[in-house]
Design a protein around this nucleic acid. Structure first.
Lengths: 345, 345
DNA sequence: ACGGTTTGTCGAAGCGCTTCGCCAGCGTCC
DNA sequence: GGACGCTGGCGAAGCGCTTCGACAAACCGT
């Protein structure tokens, strides 16, 4: 019996590789990690053995010995009012770019709450944490600060001290929408926002967009009505009809609610207002969605993939003890399509 | 120096707990796992120490020693034509129910392909694998068979031998739609299906629904036109208009494409056909989506959460070496709402 | 009072890997 | 030509946990 008192796992171990290549275990390890110089001859012999035996390092053993799991956690929201496609795009971007850094991604939902975070972080299941759907006064923030593991927030809480946050500059995005519309000559706008619940729980992006819209409107001498909007067709219809009943001279809409776009268009057409002839529409939503709508929507895209990449890159840098900025805001840009034009034409 | 030659991690270890409670390390382990009888007195002393020290078992060490990572992998698709909200619902259901079995979820995207699967499985990063978006002749299927780790497919490949699959019975779902409409008196139907690419790559659910629809239509002596449908408003519009141009007497639509529902309704209303007065609509989509549409849609809901729970439960049973059925098909049910009625009323 | 179980606990041997210290062999430089 | 520095490799000590076998002590029936 050469080794092992218990049941064999079937998988070859680093010792098998070492024996097969005629070198020491540590040499194999150094070939794999590149942390010490290894002669080209030995290197290729070891690599050949690895390939031949179909060796894959055991993740648990590696994590135990190196104190690095090569896994990061991604905490996703699952509650109502989230932009599902955005979240999904974001998640895939995170997985893809984490793999580019030789890390895997552990998926958590926020419903296990802070306890879940503590469990995986303290248990060394993950090296770092990415948190989505951050609220202005998020309960997880104090925990993240004390956790002792690198973390990156997607979204901005009120107090960003000692944190690392990345997000689209939604304030600027709101401004961009207004500037575009004001530039076209619109004087009365409305913002069809996220569901009321999203504002109530203090989700940053909704507040920041609204603030940007209102601020820019004031600056450009433009009137704006901001109202939240649920994600069902009936509510959207009611809101839009009510809006134009109270403010018949509104000539442009800013929409930050993907689910509302379709129903909104239906409501407008029911009111006999055509886009963009009678009403211009600017959306804050994934580019692809705007592209697929009819008419194609002028929009400020939410660069979910770019945010995901940035978040991963930031957490990796923190893992390497680099200093990173507390806040990274990506500059939004506005893509002009077919849903906006000058009013009264 | 009591322990450790290298840098302290800060986290208390099981040895710290044992020392604090005045017992052996193995005793603490048995308290935690419950695998041997421990006196109530000792048990409570140990638990008290654990709480006091804030001990969390190290995942890597545990995985190494026990040969179980307590993690399952979830392979999600990220390509076009997938039903994003369904996937998302599914993912959260998987995470939630995995946690109920004391497991975490590692997120993979299918773009790393079979190599990714092999890596995590061989490396013992995960104990089992859940694979979504299965094609009829999926390249990953042979790999799963040889992988030596429990796996569950969400969706049905052509050959299910030696596999475990779970899905909604889409064939029956298609039948249900037709039966409902035929029962109302409709004689000419159309199926607005998934994007063409989805059929082309042999994704099971699309094929099976279509087959069920066609089969039931033949059985009920009903005509049906089945056509794929892209996810952008312009294509949907074109298809719907073309459809009624060629078949003006079609009185009901079956839709299996969430993104197409809104544009379809818009197209119908542009054609002057009202739902359900002139055209009845049955959707195969998440219940919530149907509920939020206007009018509320009669639908066959895709029970993403239930499928997720089932998938986790199956993989857990396989982890415990239980025998499980090769194929689990959940029975669909049809929810009648406001989008269907008898024709010509 | 004495074998035979149970019950509760302990000690130690790994799990498969990383990493530290050590050293042999070589070229190099006054 | 000896002190020195590299280079390439080895051996062994853990990392923190689970689990197996051993074994006192308590309990049993007789």
């Amino acid at each position: 019996m050469t080794r092992r008192g218990r049941v064999a796992s079937g998988q070859p171990t680093i010792a098998d590789v070492a024996r097969h290549a005629g070198v020491a275990v540590s040499t194999v390890s150094y070939v794999l990690s590149g942390k010490r110089a290894i002669s080209e001859l030995t290197r290729s012999r070891v690599l050949a053995s690895i390939r031949l035996l179909g060796y894959h390092p055991n993740a648990g053993a590696r994590a135990l010995a190196s104190r690095r799991a090569n896994v990061i956690a991604l905490v996703l929201p699952l509650r109502s009012g989230i932009q599902v496609p955005v979240v999904m795009q974001f998640a895939t971007a995170v997985v893809t770019s984490a793999r580019g850094h030789d890390h895997d991604v552990l998926l958590l939902t926020s419903d296990e709450g802070p306890a879940g975070l503590r469990r995986i972080a303290a248990g060394a299941l993950v090296d770092g944490v990415l948190v989505m759907d951050v609220e202005l006064h998020d309960v997880r923030v104090p925990l993240l600060r004390e956790l002792g593991r690198p973390s990156v927030l997607i979204g901005l809480p009120t107090d960003t001290r000692q944190l690392t946050c990345v997000d689209l500059d939604f304030h600027r995005a709101g401004q961009l929408c207004v500037e575009h519309l004001a530039g076209l000559g619109h004087r009365r706008l409305a913002l069809l926002g996220a569901p009321a619940a999203v504002y109530e729980r203090g989700t940053g992006f909704a507040h920041r967009t609204r603030a940007g819209v209102i601020e820019a409107a004031a600056r450009h001498g433009v009137d704006v009505v901001a109202l939240p909007c649920e994600e069902n067709a009936a509510d959207v219809h009611r809101r839009v009809v009510g809006l134009f009943a109270r403010h018949p001279d509104i000539s442009a809409l800013i929409v930050q609610n993907e689910a509302a776009v379709g129903p909104m268009q239906a409501a407008l057409s029911a009111l006999g207002r055509r886009v963009p002839r009678d009403v211009s529409v600017v959306a804050v939503c994934p580019d692809q969605f705007a592209e697929h709508a009819s008419p194609r929507l002028t929009c400020v895209p939410v660069p979910a993939e770019e945010i995901g990449r940035q978040a991963v890159s930031l957490v990796m840098r923190k893992l390497h003890d680099e200093l990173v900025p507390e806040v990274t805001l990506l500059p939004p840009r506005l893509t002009v399509r077919d849903s906006t034009s000058s009013p009264g034409r």
